[in-house]
């Protein structure tokens, strides 16, 4: 059982402490990635990851660290403040690189096109946490829709939760109940 945390929260976040406690208590291994501090270059859509170095970005940055952890994970936790009803740029810099997890080819499932996974299907469960600072219901709705589309494109089961003002107790409850549901604890 391995958890990857893609922490897109700006500045201090209590997510690392929370993971440390949970990990120690239940004997779960995890990789905590404070994305703000990582050098992840934007995807330039150069096509190199398909045509030159399949599955790898031509630009040298911290992306391999993210990918190595994702491919061995059962649960991926992504956290971001809700930004214009979507993700902030810090989380998005890692998410764009997740295109490396897919193959360039197209397949059809239930009538819809998709890219099959490079590392197999249904790699992990994804938990997407949106931090709200009294955001409007409309922004929260847009956020939930984006989370749903993201899980669909990655073809992974998911949960999206919105917490007000960094309420880490709620985040802890959600993580624990997800781990119980998936019978990891």
């Amino acid at each position: 059982m391995h958890i990857t945390v893609l922490d897109g929260i700006e500045g201090i976040s209590q997510l690392e402490d929370l993971l440390k406690l949970t990990g120690e208590q239940y004997g779960i291994s995890y990789t905590y990635l404070k994305l703000e501090k990582m050098d992840i270059q934007p995807c330039r859509n150069c096509g190199g990851c398909s045509t030159k170095t399949p599955g790898e970005c031509l630009f040298k940055d911290d992306t391999p660290e993210v990918m190595k952890s994702l491919v061995k994970s059962n649960l991926v936790i992504m956290a971001t403040p809700i930004r214009f009803g979507g993700f902030n740029s810090i989380l998005k810099k890692a998410l764009d690189k997740c295109a490396l997890l897919g193959l360039p080819f197209f397949k059809v499932d239930k009538g819809s096109l998709y890219h099959p996974g490079r590392y197999g299907e249904t790699m992990f469960t994804s938990l997407i946490i949106g931090i709200s600072r009294s955001h409007s219901e409309k922004q929260k709705q847009s956020f939930r829709q984006l989370a749903k589309q993201n899980a669909a494109i990655m073809r992974v089961p998911y949960q999206a939760v919105i917490v007000e003002d960094n309420d880490m107790l709620q985040v802890k409850d959600v993580i624990l109940s997800l781990l119980r549901e998936e019978q990891y604890i």
Partner: peptide, 25 residues
């Protein structure tokens, strides 16, 4: 059709195995 386009560009790019898994431990 799209896979045909992808395969042609892979051929042009001269990449090796398109299914390569660089991050498998």
């Amino acid at each position: 059709f799209l896979n045909y386009i992808v395969k042609s560009s892979l051929k042009k790019g001269g990449a090796g195995d398109p299914y390569h898994k660089p991050y498998c431990s």
